[in-house]
Design a protein around this nucleic acid. Structure first.
Length: 214
DNA sequence: AACAATAGCAACCGCAGGGCT
DNA sequence: TAGCCCTGCGGTTGCTATTGT
């Protein structure tokens, strides 16, 4: 059995107060991100490290773009989801200022329904044959997605088209299928923090001033 | 105006992967 | 090489706001 990530008895849960936010912001301004396990104690927060990390990444980071998603962002999410499946962090990585959690929430609350209304199965982005095709017709994006599912040449064996929840259609050839998408899906050190330990380490040195607000 | 249903979003949980010893 | 630790990710839950009746 793993140890729990923190001593749950002594930690707050639920919504963050302004004071807690401020403590976290102040601490990260001074010391940078990382060491989430020890951060709460060092920052004087009665929270577990995970909770602090989540709060910072999803809400407090200064480079977050909050507010409604633009139409082009929506399109991009839909296209990327068709390619990558539920890999929200990768999708969010292509949307500056957006977090994986935000993208995921937006997908689940808006875009999924939107695709359903367009007669497209949001799981695999295939035309939902059992549904009557929306009389207004699929939008150009909808049509694109439908077209994507009827490629002239199948890149691989048939089962790849039985996309699962997490499945992406053609991870190895996104550019051929979506030439208008500039998909550099290789991992790179993110601008601010969206990524793992490597980035953490790479960022440790530069972090102190450059990406923090003044 | 009161209540119920639904939507939206913040936060939590558990698992997986990578680094370190 | 195995085991531990830390971090990040995706799924899910639960609270609040909004809309409908």
């Amino acid at each position: 059995m793993r140890k729990p990530c923190c001593d749950k008895q002594d930690t707050n849960k639920g919504a963050w107060s302004k004071q807690e936010d401020q403590k976290l912001i102040d601490y990260i301004r001074k010391h940078g991100e990382g060491c989430w396990r020890t951060l709460p104690q060092a920052a004087g927060l009665a929270r577990c490290g995970k909770s602090c990390r989540l709060r910072w990444i999803n809400y407090l980071r200064p480079d977050l773009k909050r507010g409604n998603f633009a139409e082009d962002e929506e399109d991009l999410i839909i296209k990327l989801h068709a390619l990558l499946g539920n890999r929200w962090s990768l999708i969010a990585g292509r949307l500056p200022g957006r977090t994986a959690n935000e993208v995921k929430n937006y997908w689940n609350s808006h875009l999924r329904r939107k695709l359903i209304n367009m007669g497209i199965d949001p799981k695999n982005h295939r035309l939902h044959h059992s549904l009557p095709h929306n009389s207004t017709g699929a939008t150009s994006l909808g049509q694109q997605l439908v077209d994507m599912n009827e490629p002239a040449v199948k890149p691989r064996g048939d089962d790849i088209y039985q996309a699962s929840d997490a499945g992406s259609c053609w991870e190895d050839e996104p550019c051929r299928l979506l030439p208008d998408l500039n998909l550099d899906l290789t991992m790179s050190i993110p601008s601010s923090s969206s990524s793992p330990s490597l980035a953490n380490k790479a960022n440790t040195e530069k972090k102190n001033d450059s990406e923090l607000p003044n």
